Simulated assay, not measured.
Amino acid sequence: MAARLLAHEVSDMCLGKPPLTSLPISATIRHALDALKSSQDTHISIWTCDLHHHSTTDGCRCVGKICMVDIICYLCREDNISSPSVALKSPVSVLLSHVPGVIEHVDPSYSLLEAIDLIVNGAQNLVVPIKNTASKRKQLRQQPSIAPTTHAGGREFCWLTQEDVIRFLLSSIGLFSPTAAYSIESLGIITPEILTVNYHSPASKAVDAIATSLAGQTSVAVVDDDGVLIGEISPFTLTYCDEMVAAAITTLTAGDLLAYIDCGGPPEDITRIVEARLKERNLTGMLDEFSIYSSGIPYCNSTSSSDEETIPSPTTTRSGRYNRSDSFSARIMRRAEPIVCNPGSSLVAVMIQAIALRVNYVWVIEEDGSVVGIVKFSGMLKVFQEHLESMVN
């Protein structure tokens, strides 16, 4: 069984995955915004092509990825909030990460262990060719808006993410006994360095933290004065919001922002507050560019079935502390409510929590609700990497 797992290649994890939605490096942020709104994808891949370079990708290469959170954070910059229409004309290149290795092109024959090594060393998305097509289309760099994901030579590509690899390993979790049953504390994968913002602080103070959490595939904890976890401003949540959230971040406190991004769209009273404060600060450009009354969240629960609506979500006491009699893992209909576990939770239990709710991390809290740290997919994969390497040696 162990040899069979190690024999798996990257292509085995790409079965059934759709081709990437892509844009050329010459596109603008508005092109990216339109692409995100018209696509089922939460991320748009950005490509550059060199017609004089002959490589395995026929001169075309993915150089980054963009999601709604990148656009929201960019619009929240001091020099952009007054003129969002001008900001949207900027090239998508200003949104790209300058951290090397975040995007890696890999051959479909890469082994499972090689893919895990890349992710542990910082890769977030592996770009994998998935099929050939006989259709001949224009070069990616020539497209003014959404470009086809078929590049020169008829090649199509897909993402392979940390979640894909974790999900794949979970299907063979019995091979990792007893390691998978060990607590996350004993495995040493709780990261104590976390990003936080006080519940009463202006949400605008969290913009840099939001951008950092997006780059690190984590989240920003919203805490009270005692360090108790009240909620989170998660890139996962903001990915499903529209660009008007930039106005909410600019005008609201962190606590009010939680209500704004929670399920069902922003409450009408908070929407009126956002509008009034934009006018007070003479930031009417946001009102002119975007519809203030558009839904902050296009749809509330894109990953849950109707049966899941009956699952109870965690409740808090009047002090805001979590009631430990409730399930920590259920955050079915509340986008701003964090997924939490405790230091004694097993690795496999935390994996299932994260996979079930489509996030790359789980908060770790104590009995009183104070935050201990965070567990990330990259830390989990480090454990599996060591286990798989021991199988080889």
Rank of each mutant, 00 (worst) to 15 (best):
Thr310His: 10
Arg331Thr: 03
Leu6Val: 01
Val383Asn: 00
Glu243Ile: 05
Leu118Ile: 03
Ser93Val: 00
Glu268Val: 11
Ala35Asp: 03
Ile173Glu: 00
Arg318His: 09
His8Glu: 10
Ser378Lys: 13
Val371Glu: 02
Ile292Val: 06
Val102Thr: 09
Val10Cys: 15
Ile273Lys: 13
Ile25Leu: 13
Ser22Met: 07
Val69Gly: 01
Met286Ala: 00
Leu95Tyr: 05
Lys279Arg: 14
Pro338Gln: 10
Pro19Gln: 15
Gln162Cys: 10
Met1Ser: 11
Val94His: 12
Val128Lys: 14
Leu140Ala: 06
Glu243Gly: 13
Asp41Phe: 08
Trp363Phe: 12
Thr48Met: 07
Ala356Lys: 08
Phe290Asn: 12
Ala246Arg: 06
Thr315Gly: 13
Ser306Trp: 14
Ile190His: 05
Leu381Gly: 02
Ser295Trp: 01
Asp368Ser: 11
Ala276Arg: 07
Val392Trp: 02
Ser291Gly: 09
Val274Pro: 00
Gln353Thr: 02
Ile81His: 13
Cys158Ser: 13
Ser213Asp: 02
Ile365Thr: 06
Cys300Asn: 03
Cys76Gly: 03
Phe377Val: 00
Lys131Leu: 15
Ala276Phe: 04
Ser135Gly: 15
Ala248Val: 01
Ile273Met: 07
Ile173Ser: 07
Ser370His: 06
Leu88Phe: 08
Leu15Lys: 12
Lys136Glu: 15
His200Val: 01
Phe157Ile: 10
Thr196Ser: 09
Glu243Tyr: 02
Ala206Lys: 02
Ile116His: 08
Arg77Asp: 15
Leu33Ser: 13
Leu20Met: 12
Ser83Val: 07
Leu95Trp: 05
Ser11His: 10
Ser11Thr: 03
Val10Ile: 14
Cys263Asp: 08
Arg61Met: 08
Val222Gln: 04
Val127Asn: 11
His200Asp: 15
Val350Trp: 03
Tyr322Met: 09
Ile190Asn: 01
Arg334Asp: 14
Gly153Trp: 00
Ser327Met: 10
Thr150Val: 04
Glu389Phe: 01
Ala35Leu: 03
Ala123Gln: 14
Glu193His: 08
Val223Leu: 05
Tyr74Ser: 04
Met351Arg: 08
Pro19Asp: 12
Leu347Lys: 02
Ser234Pro: 00
Val359Thr: 02
Pro343His: 10
Val127Thr: 13
Ile249Glu: 09
Ile270Val: 13
Phe176Cys: 14
Gly16Arg: 02
Asn301Trp: 07
Ser370Asn: 05
Asp41Val: 09
Pro343Ser: 14
Lys17Arg: 15
Ser171Thr: 09
Met1Leu: 14
Cys67Met: 04
Met68Asn: 13
Ala181Glu: 03
Ser370Glu: 07
